[in-house]
């Protein structure tokens, strides 16, 4: 079990790392340029949720898990996503 997991982990995690960095840069670009409004706010927020899911799946290793624990991070992101979105929808 551990060996299979290790083989899965090594390469994908580096790839994920690069994606995380890229998304962060885009978020930063939006930030330093003070881009505002629904499109940009939800763009970076969507990136944030995606990054969270990647961290959960690949860094925390939840992708390898079967059953309810597989969805811990996803559920959290979903709830937080809904709550924050509903608060921001009308006010950005």
């Amino acid at each position: 079990m551990n060996e299979t997991r290790a083989r899965h982990l090594f390469r994908p995690c580096t790839w994920v790392y690069v994606v995380l960095l890229s998304l962060t840069f885009i978020t930063w670009l939006v930030g330093v340029n003070h881009f505002s409004g629904r499109f940009f706010a939800f763009l970076v927020f969507g990136f944030a949720l995606l990054k969270g899911q990647l961290i959960g799946d690949y860094f925390m290793g939840l992708k390898q898990v079967a059953g309810p624990w597989r969805w811990v991070v996803f559920t959290w992101l979903l709830l937080v996503g809904i709550l924050i979105s509903s608060a921001f929808w009308q006010t950005v």
Partner: peptide, 8 residues
């Protein structure tokens, strides 16, 4: 990060 620093 985006919530506090970027989203507006």
């Amino acid at each position: 990060f985006p919530l506090v620093y970027v989203m507006r």
